[in-house]
Amino acid sequence: MPLNVEHDLHGRRKGRNVGVGLMLGAFVVLVMVLTFVKITQTDFATGPGAVGPASGTAPVEGN
C-alpha cells in the first residue's frame, strides 16, 4: 500500500514542527549576533590571548 504524502500524523505534527523550526532559526540568528558582538568587543591586540609585545608579556628568549 503506498504511503500517502499527507498522512493525518503530518497534519497533527505540523504546528509542532513549524514551532521547533522557528526556534532553531531564532537560535542560529542569536548565536550569529552574539558572535558578532563578542568579536567586535574583544580587543585582540591587547586582550589576554594576544601574542607579542602588545600583550605585555616579554617574548621567551631561546637558550
Binding site: 500524523l9 504546528g15 509542532r16 521547533v20
Partner: peptide, 17 residues
Amino acid sequence: MSDITNTPAAEYEAQLG
C-alpha cells in the same frame, strides 16, 4: 505497513505548548 499508519488517529499528539 509503516509504523506511521499504526498510530491511532485519536491518540493525543503533544503540542509545543
